[in-house]
């Protein structure tokens, strides 16, 4: 394995400053071109408008609305979330990153980046969707909580999968295929949760809690496994 620079000498402070440096670089690179974000957001907008247009303004039942919402979110996320690692391999900066920065700080900074990316995506998609598909949100706070929890879980689960896909050359829809089994429970619970927010009856907080617990769990597992995906012999 490549001897990565140990952060233990500098302690937590070193890890923290590494993370901040990585994040600053990632955001600067991303927002210089806004490539991934543009594609994901335009995709979401096109799909939402297409659905609204073809439905001809007829409102869907609550269950269908939340299925469509999560389908749009899922595929938009699949368009953008792998970009953070695929870019490093494409621009051949991965090797440099591997040697110069500790593995742990890379994983933490990339997952923070993905979380922020996902949040931006949700902030754009959800109002657009609510606006165009005449979604009647009854429990607004719960709706926002469910969407946010689902987004956090999706971003947490896909970070390490993005690293794997980048290693495989970032080929087309491979990311979608390998993410699907891992994201299935998340989508399932999220759909249930948002459907609850669209109904009159008081929603149960089990679903968002499950989503947050799941994202914490999968983040920890990914953190442990990231070393064997990222480092090379």
């Amino acid at each position: 394995m490549t001897p990565a620079r140990s952060s233990s000498a500098a302690g937590v402070y070193g890890l923290g400053s590494d993370i901040i440096r990585n994040l600053r670089k990632d955001f600067r690179v991303e927002f210089r071109s806004r490539f991934a974000l543009n594609i994901a957001v335009s995709f979401a907008a096109i799909v939402t408008i297409a659905m609204s247009l073809t439905a001809g303004g007829a409102p869907f039942p609550a269950a269908v609305q939340s299925i469509l919402l999560w389908t749009v979110i899922f595929f938009s996320a699949m368009n953008g979330l792998s970009h953070i690692f695929v870019r490093e391999e494409d621009q051949a900066t991965a090797l440099f990153l591997r040697v110069s920065v500790t593995t742990d700080s890379i994983f933490i900074s990339k997952s923070i980046f993905n979380q922020v990316f996902m949040m931006i995506l949700l902030i754009v998609i959800t109002p657009l969707f609510v606006f165009f598909l005449q979604v009647n949100v009854i429990h607004i706070a719960f709706f926002i909580l469910s969407v946010a929890a689902g987004g956090i879980a999706i971003a947490a689960a896909t970070t390490i999968l993005a690293a794997m896909v980048a290693k495989a050359g970032g080929k087309g829809s491979l990311f979608t295929i390998i993410s699907f089994p891992v994201l299935l429970p998340i989508l399932w619970v999220s759909i249930n949760s948002t459907t609850g927010a669209l109904r009159q009856t008081a929603p149960s907080y089990d679903n968002p809690v499950f989503l947050l617990a799941f994202s914490g769990f999968i983040s920890v597992i990914s953190f442990l496994l990231f070393r064997s995906v990222w480092l090379e012999d």
Binding site: I160, L161, M164, V182, I221
Partner: peptide
């Protein structure tokens, strides 16, 4: 690693 992640779900 992928198999492990998929299995824990």
């Amino acid at each position: 690693s992928y198999l492990v992640i998929a299995m824990i779900t």
